[in-house]
Each structure stands twice: as structure tokens, then as C-alpha cells.
Simulated assay, not measured.
Amino acid sequence: MKPQKPSERGAALLSVLLMVAVLAVIAATTLDRLSLSNRLSGNGNALAQARMFTYATEAIASARIEDLVARDAAQTTLAGDWLGKPQTIPIPIGSATASVRDAGNCFNLNSLVTETGGQYVASAAGQEQMISLMVGLGINENTARIIAAASADWADSNVMPLPNGVEDDGYRSLATPYLAANGLYAHPSELRAVNGVTPAIYAKLQDWICALPDPVLSPLNVNTLLPEQAPLLAMLFPPGKMNLTLARSYLAKRPSSGYGSLIRFWAAPEIAALQPSSLVQGQVKLTSNYFLLSTIVSFGELKLAGQSMIVASPAPARVVWRSWGEEE
């Protein structure tokens, strides 16, 4: 047998070492992927269980909302300290908290249109209330009028822009083109896509707007409207007509048992002097039908935050939309 040269032995050793290195990399990659797969599977299971707990919380909240509404069919009040109060929900593993607020006490983006013959038509009343709200929140009135028109165009069925409005052609010309929805707002965050709505303006509006499932003027319940929500009461009147200090003061004086009658609410001299229109008088309510449930479910390292819109009437109370997101 011919003896190997030292150079050949060195090459063979290098080949073996190279093969061992390749196998080590393959093994490490396989173990890493297996570990990642296990983590993803664990996270997926945790997320699924957290969602199940959220569904259970929705069922509990819906039952309690039915009881709240049935307690007094004539009015919904703050009796029972239910508005915005965090409640701990017992779950087998982890923790869950929930709170409910009156989801009708907001500016309904879908009030920017009315439904006529199966079509959505821009509503002048809805636009004026949006303008009034924005002015009350410190947004320039000219800017507010442009945004209100564009927001109505976003939801109406036609493709003809309103004065100051924007339809598809205006959005097609953007660096990242898209089209107007030409339908009801599904979620208030849609407003961010509307012409003129900057991040700064949306930040001012996001706590005051909602997207109720019906194109109706915001059904404000003056029995649950809080003094700090005075801009919502002021938005019922032309911009600047109702002083915010007056609005806060009037809401703070509300009887603890509720107004009991809309005649009683409108009869106060400071409100009567503003001469509310019949449309506005019909808009204000003593009862609530829309409720927003906010939940946080903690499960292991996962913290799932959710929101659910619950409609109380007609019974039984039901969830019409929900959204989830992992809380950091």
C-alpha cells in the first residue's frame, strides 16, 4: 500500500473538520427552528385561550348590560357605578379585567351620512356637528370644515366630491394610492385615511369619535354624559354657540337619579336660551343602547387587549364587532 503524503493527510483532516462544522451548523439550525416552533406553538395556544376568556367576558358583560337596561326601560343612569369601573373577571389561569362605557356618547362618524333608497347620502347635520366638535377641541374651523366634508365623502355612496370634499381621484394621486370606502365606517381608526386628518388631528379626535353600526346622529344619553365630556354636548349647537364651561357646569348639576324626562333637561334656562333645533332635541336620549367593553386578559407572558361593541336592543344583547391587539 502506497503511503499517504503529509499534504494528503492534511487535506483529509480538513475535509473531516469541514464536514463536522457543517453538521454542527445544521444541528444548531434544526434545534433553533424546533425551539422557535415550540415557542410559536405555545404562543398560539396562549393566544387562543386568551381569546376564549375574552369571549366569556363578553358573555358576562352582555348579561349584565341586559340587566342594566331592563332595570328601568325609561332611562339608563349611572346608578350602580358601572360606567368605566374596572371589574376583575375570575379565570382559571392568569387574570382578566373588564370595563364598560356608554358607546353612544361620542361623535358617530356614520352620522355624516343618511340612508336613502339603499344609498348613503351626505348629511349636513352630521357635518355641522363634527365641525362644532373639532372647533371645541381646538381645531381651526376652516380645517374642520375641510375634514368634515372629506369624512362625509368617505362614507357616502357616490363618487362626486362635496365642496371641500375628496373622492377617489384625490386619493389616487397620493404616493400610495387608495380609494374612498364609499360605505359606512367600520371602525373609528378609518378616519386616519381621510384627506386632511393628520396624526396630530387624529390624536385630538380619537377619544371623541366612534363608528356606530347605524347612520344616525349620535344618540347622546344625558343621564350618563360626564362633565368632562362637555364638548359632546356643545357639538349639538353651531360652533362656539355653547360655552364649554357652561356645558360642564350643566352636566355636573344633573340629578343623581337622572333627569327622568327630556322636558326637564331642555327646560333649564341656560339650555332653552340656545334654542335647540327639533332635530337635536330628538337626538338626545335618556337611555343607552350601545356599550363598549374593554378587556385585558393576561395569560403567561401574553397580555391581550380587546374592545367589543355590544348592542343592547333588541334583546338579547349582542356583540356587533370586536378588535384585539397584544398589549406591550
Rank of each mutant, 00 (worst) to 15 (best):
L205S: 00
V284D: 04
D207P: 00
N195H: 14
L286H: 01
E190H: 05
E228A: 10
M242I: 09
A230N: 09
I263D: 15
A234F: 09
A273W: 10
K253Q: 14
T224D: 05
L225E: 02
R248T: 13
F237N: 02
F291E: 04
Q275P: 01
P255W: 11
P227L: 08
A230S: 14
T224M: 11
N221V: 08
P219W: 05
S261M: 08
T198F: 08
Y259R: 07
I296T: 14
D207C: 00
M242V: 09
R192M: 14
S278W: 10
I296S: 14
Y259T: 07
Y250S: 08
P269R: 15
N223C: 06
A211I: 01
V284G: 01
V197P: 04
E190W: 04
W266F: 15
V197M: 11
A273H: 13
P269Q: 13
Y259C: 02
V222M: 12
L292A: 14
D207Y: 03
E270P: 09
Y185M: 11
E228Y: 11
A234W: 01
G258P: 05
A203D: 15
E228C: 00
S277V: 12
A211D: 05
P231I: 07
P188G: 06
E228I: 08
G282I: 07
P219V: 10
Q281A: 09
K204D: 13
L244R: 09
L274T: 12
I209V: 15
A267K: 13
A247N: 06
E228T: 13
P276C: 09
Q229T: 06
A193F: 12
A267H: 14
P219K: 03
K253R: 15
S261F: 03
S277L: 10
N223A: 06
L262Y: 11
S294G: 11
Y290V: 00
L262C: 12
L226I: 06
L236T: 08
L220I: 15
V194F: 02
A200V: 13
L232P: 02
L279P: 01
E228H: 07
S288L: 04
P188S: 14
P199R: 09
G258K: 04
R264T: 15
A200M: 07
V280K: 06
Y202T: 03
T198L: 12
I209H: 02
V222P: 01
G260D: 08
L286W: 00
S261T: 13
G260S: 13
E190Q: 05
G240Q: 08
P231R: 04
L217S: 01
A203M: 07
P238V: 09
P188D: 12
R192F: 01
G260N: 12
V280P: 01
L293K: 05
K253P: 00
Y202V: 05
A252W: 01
K204Q: 14
L184K: 08
L184C: 07
A268D: 13
P199F: 11
A211K: 01
V284K: 00
A247V: 07
P199H: 11
L220V: 12
P231K: 06
S256E: 14
K285V: 02
P199V: 04
T245A: 14
Q229H: 09
L226Q: 15
A268E: 12
L212H: 05
P219F: 11
F291M: 06
I209F: 06
A234K: 04
G196L: 10
L191D: 02
P276A: 13
A272R: 15
L246C: 11
K285P: 00
M235T: 04
I201Q: 00
